[in-house]
């Protein structure tokens, strides 16, 4: 089956891979924002994850340890954000931007000496005969394990937020920190945990870039993916399922415009390169207007610092 020379099965398969970094980072940021914290430092955390993951994987020879190292490195960076905004009550927007600046610089310093090295390969999950199903096999069953892990994380975050006590407390903290505090929850501690989770997820996304997407380390390798992740959280109106849709839509349009070019479609390239952003805005407008208005459920305390006065 072909549309304009493009095989949709192949397209879907590649957009699933292309979307993993922004999906993971956006999912982490979603949890952070659900707890009422706006961390604009996703790009900085992602690139720290990319460099730490790369260094760990190269040193140990294990991609799995690499991903863990990436998550850990970014989480440590996010700890700075947590300390500043939660303990020292600094402004979240400014701290997040500073975090990106710092992360970009630090990652480059750490990565010196790792340029031009290949990391160990992350394996494809052997799904045997499933991979050979025509069409579907190519779309669904020939990926590396991080692709499946990222989708599993979407389900996990959704389930935890919706069905567990932990999720309920997290949302309560994000809706009204004062009320949650009055009920006896440790607002600051819960928010710090959420920030660390967000950092770890951004780190996983970054590590996916340097270990699978591109397999290499170079300065500035995430090239703005963290900003896209931030956009997707708002686009998804803070719902995990929609984060998946948003990430796949964005990844899909990016991949599609390159595929259209490769297939020789006569399209104005310079306008195509802005199409992912324009379409995202358009979808956002449609969603936030009319009946969708109620569904824009931003956490009420988003971006506001909490200080227990009693």
């Amino acid at each position: 089956m072909d549309f304009g020379g493009i095989n949709p099965a192949v397209l879907i398969a590649s957009l699933m891979v292309a979307s993993v970094p922004i999906l993971l980072a956006a999912l982490g940021e979603l949890v952070v924002e659900k707890a009422g914290v706006l961390n604009l430092g996703v790009e900085g955390m992602m690139i720290m994850g990319a460099v730490c993951g790369f260094i760990t994987a190269v040193t140990t020879g294990s991609p799995l340890l690499g991903f863990l190292g990436g998550a850990l490195g970014a989480a440590v960076l996010s700890l700075i954000f947590a300390l500043l905004t939660q303990v020292l009550l600094a402004n979240q927007v400014a701290t997040g931007l500073a975090l990106t600046l710092f992360g970009l610089g630090l990652s480059s310093l750490l990565g010196q000496g790792y340029v031009g090295i290949k990391p160990p390969a992350t394996g494809v999950v052997p799904l045997g005969p499933l991979a050979d199903i025509p069409g579907l096999g190519r779309i669904l069953f020939r990926h590396d394990w991080m692709v499946y892990a990222s989708i599993a994380m979407v389900a996990a975050v959704w389930a935890v937020l919706r069905f567990t006590r932990m999720g309920l407390i997290l949302r309560a903290v994000g809706e009204s920190a004062d009320a949650a505090h009055a009920l006896g929850y440790k607002v600051t501690r819960i928010r710090i945990m959420a920030i660390l989770f967000g950092g770890a997820m951004a780190g996983l996304g970054g590590a996916y870039v340097s270990l699978v997407r591109v397999p290499q380390w170079t300065d500035g390798i995430t090239a703005g993916a963290g900003w896209i992740a931030l956009a997707i959280v708002v686009f998804a109106s803070w719902r995990p399922g929609r984060v998946l849709i948003g990430a796949y839509l964005f990844g899909g349009i990016t991949v599609l415009q390159l595929n259209l070019q490769a297939a020789g479609a006569r399209i104005p390239v310079e306008y195509l390169s802005m199409s992912p952003y324009l379409i995202t805005i358009l979808v956002l407008v449609i969603m936030s207007s009319g009946k969708g208005r109620a569904s824009l459920n931003a956490p009420a305390s988003l971006g506001r610092n909490f200080h227990a006065s009693r």
Partner: peptide, 20 residues
């Protein structure tokens, strides 16, 4: 390296925000 300057600026911002 330019990266060290970037990290340094990041630190300055962190401290300015923290001591506020």
């Amino acid at each position: 390296p330019a990266a060290a300057i970037q990290a340094f600026q990041g630190m300055l911002l962190f401290f300015l925000l923290a001591v506020d």
